[in-house]
Nucleic acid binder design. Structure first.
Lengths: 219, 219
DNA sequence: TTCGCAATTAACCGATTGGTTCAAAGCGAT
DNA sequence: ATCGCTTTGAACCAATCGGTTAATTGCGAA
């Protein structure tokens, strides 16, 4: 009963049976999976609710409507991915090794975050209107381009990289290959067989992508 | 009244006011646009009907249900694109020139067939289940890989191409870059600015893609 | 002219869906 | 004990949506 630490602003609700933050987090987690699986119009509020510990009522109580929920899912997904871009410590590596590491990391990272890839696909179907509406997504764009630029500058100084490389274009190429690998795996496998989707195929492909990118910047 | 040319099998209905083939074609055209714009679950039967010269009833009369219509739209889209892959006459060019032409053609082709790209995106959201269910799509896969293989062989014989190039992987890389360019333009522009989406940006990008691909096969 | 099938229209329907109403319960503060 | 705000549950609802019923017309064939 000793009122130890009772800040007015920060609500101390760890002891509550009612735990709104946990409920919201639960909804967001399930909603991300459902939106990633079925798209904005394809996902069903009832289905999200069923897979949650709470009820459909709470979805609209906390998130207003379906589209707002979708927007929050998107924002959280971008936030998670950015936080997940752990420090690669590329500064200590020579430019070629740094670039190799960055590319293969991106390749694996996309592969491991399929839900995020699918959300971005869905968002592109919507012509990016929801990411455009989100200031937080637009504001904190990933440090990938700056990292690249730093690597490129070092490589140019050493005379091993071409001097006419556009960092944004290079980032675009890396993203494109790593993204496409995940986004189009289904149709590509159906039409050309799953040679590339197998584990060995993916290893060979990653090597190829790394090689192709590195090769494109060497003098 | 002289019953001139009245084949039993091939119905001569050019003179009819009722023209089922035209009605079906009209529905398919609008349906393709609507599915490409809003996805399978997002597209509305009523909206498709409204933009057609006919009624909603006719959609279900000719196409059974929404999913069947979607499947026919997909098949027609793949058919159109394959027919549109006009003869590039690459045989007469030296291997490098042939490859350059193939890549830049693919780049432009994807750019010009946005609806098709979007249908493929949507299909990947559905994990390719509808293309997998279509024998006609699986059967006639594009001649792109064979064309590539032919170019690669000539290049290898001349000693200017590496001997360890996997044609399918090379096709994958070309597809990936050209596809991503269209599919992810929206989100990429929102986050990194539209430098790449501008006309000049696209020209520079195409040159870069061609260069990157060619560079990746040279010894 | 009439028969019979294909094509077409208008009205209709049941199920689903996103979203709400309303009242009750949890809980900190006093 | 009780006030007042937040959180929750159950039932409910209006609109939307894919799909259908049933009756009508167009038209070639006999």
């Amino acid at each position: 009963m000793t009122a130890e630490a009772k800040p007015k602003a920060s609500r101390q609700r760890a002891t509550w049976k009612q735990d709104p933050e946990a409920v919201k987090a639960d909804i967001l987690r399930v909603a991300r999976e459902e939106f990633a699986a079925h798209g904005l119009s394809g996902a069903r509020a009832q289905e999200i609710a069923s897979r949650t510990k709470t009820s459909k009522r709470m979805i609209f109580y906390y998130f207003k409507d379906k589209e707002s929920l979708y927007r929050e899912v998107l924002e959280q997904a971008y936030r998670d991915v950015r936080n997940g871009e752990k420090a690669l410590e590329l500064e200590n590596l020579d430019p070629v090794a740094a670039l190799r590491k960055l590319v293969s990391y991106t390749f694996d990272h996309h592969r491991q975050n399929e839900d995020f890839i699918r959300l971005v696909m869905i968002e592109n179907i919507h012509r990016g209107s929801h990411v455009a509406a989100s200031e937080t997504i637009k504001a904190g764009n990933s440090p990938a381009v700056e990292q690249l630029q730093e690597i490129l500058e070092r490589g140019m100084q050493q005379g091993i990289f071409r001097s006419d490389i556009n960092p944004l274009q290079l980032h675009w190429k890396i993203s494109g290959l790593c993204f496409f690998n995940v986004s189009n795996e289904s149709t590509f496998s159906v039409i050309f067989g799953n040679e590339i989707a197998t584990q060995e195929g993916q290893i060979a492909l990653r090597d190829d992508v790394v090689h192709t990118i590195v090769n494109s910047v060497l003098v």
